[in-house]
Computed example of a mutant assay.
Amino acid sequence: MNILFYNTYPIDPEHGGTERVTDLVASYLKSAGYTIYYLVRVDTGMPQKETDIQTFFLPDCTKGNSPKNISFLEQLLKELKIDILINQDVWNDDVYLCNHKMLQTNVKIISTIHTSIDSGFKYFNELCKLEYSWDNPLLSLRSLFRRIRLPYLKKRIYRQKKKKMHFMHQYTDVIVVLSPKYIEEFEDLIGISGSDKIVAIPNPLTFSNLEVKKMDQKENCILFVGRLSYPEKRVDRLLYIWHKIQDKLPDWRLELVGDGKERGDCESLAKKLELKNVFFRGYQSPLEYYSKAKIVALVSNFEGFNMFILEGLQNGCIPIAFSSFAAVTDVITDGVNGCLVEPFDIDLYADKLYKLASDPSLLNKMQPLAIQAAAQYSIERIGCKWIDLFQSLLDN
């Protein structure tokens, strides 16, 4: 069976969660005897991880469903004798390329959604950065105008998303979401029920053959791994939380692994708050940081099926997160293998984080349950779900 994975950007597992998941699933399928190809729209020109999976690039990087790209993809599907096309980036307008309305093909088309269906609409105001400054009246005026426009912006984006989801449901064979909870979210969004075209397959674990350190072998480290991006990740919250508890945890440190356009703002905020024992590590391979950390902290507005939490659990770290996306309860059971906090109660989050860090017996008790929770997401289990989906598609 020949499978073509499509993504806007190159499939480099070090450059993003979607890319990492694609690499994991594609490599598993290749080891199971499937023939795998990648198709990419935008060549970033950045050095990529070496792979034995052949990558093709669309001729027009500016618009997914341009006539050039449609013709190129139709021809590629024929030449490679593709059985299944998997679109890994449906939130972009590339959903209007990988579908049966645009493509004259009998190839089965799967659309995968790598985030929550809600994607922050429930907390829409939290997505927009509002800045006020007596020293810069123009900045304050822009922020005020943005605040006034928020309800109209929310309605517009909601309509666009609903239209896109309707199109996806009508013109692709299967939609894969990350949690059974997102099936209901999707159906609610477009006003249907009982669809047999939506299935849930979660993300797999990133690492294999790990030797997990026991808590007493780890360091007093609270860890964040991810993009320093305001709308989704809201790392500024973690800095405010640390400010509340740092003096009570003088032998602990906060490490932030990752980069992004908000890094400068985060570093400035840390300086303004006079934070101690905070380290911005930049873009790094995270495994060594997971190995030594005791706690992983997520403060996002929304996620899909967060790889950071999964990777933390797998490495014997105890997660704490806001319950701001439905799938978080698939992996974290509050008070059992981690901590959940009502969005976005920073005081309660700080209190729970302090209690977790200051109670070694609680960390020791939770650790085996954290590792156990992660085990159900092994690549073998998740890979089998994908294979079962392929078989059901081709049998119909």
Score class of each variant (00 low, 15 high):
residue 158 Y to R: 05
residue 88 Q to K: 07
residue 230 Y to S: 05
residue 293 A to R: 03
residue 9 Y to V: 08
residue 135 D to C: 14
residue 158 Y to F: 02
residue 344 F to S: 03
residue 259 D to M: 12
residue 274 E to Q: 15
residue 228 L to S: 01
residue 162 K to M: 10
residue 66 S to G: 11
residue 162 K to L: 08
residue 220 N to I: 03
residue 160 Q to W: 09
residue 156 R to G: 01
residue 332 I to T: 02
residue 40 V to K: 09
residue 289 Y to E: 08
residue 282 G to A: 04
residue 178 L to M: 13
residue 271 K to I: 01
residue 167 F to C: 13
residue 265 D to C: 01
residue 339 C to E: 13
residue 165 M to I: 13
residue 138 L to S: 11
residue 39 L to T: 00
residue 33 G to R: 08
residue 208 S to M: 04
residue 331 V to M: 15
residue 265 D to K: 08
residue 132 Y to I: 07
residue 205 L to E: 04
residue 162 K to T: 07
residue 356 L to W: 07
residue 200 A to T: 01
residue 252 W to M: 03
residue 329 T to E: 14
residue 299 V to W: 03
residue 347 D to V: 08
residue 85 L to K: 08
residue 210 L to S: 01
residue 1 M to C: 06
residue 285 S to M: 10
residue 232 E to A: 11
residue 224 F to E: 01
residue 79 E to F: 02
residue 67 P to V: 06
residue 371 I to R: 06
residue 264 G to H: 10
residue 277 N to L: 02
residue 328 V to K: 12
residue 252 W to R: 02
residue 309 I to M: 10
residue 191 G to Q: 01
residue 317 C to Y: 09
residue 289 Y to I: 00
residue 201 I to A: 03
residue 325 F to R: 08
residue 6 Y to D: 04
residue 306 N to Y: 02
residue 16 G to S: 14
residue 11 I to L: 11
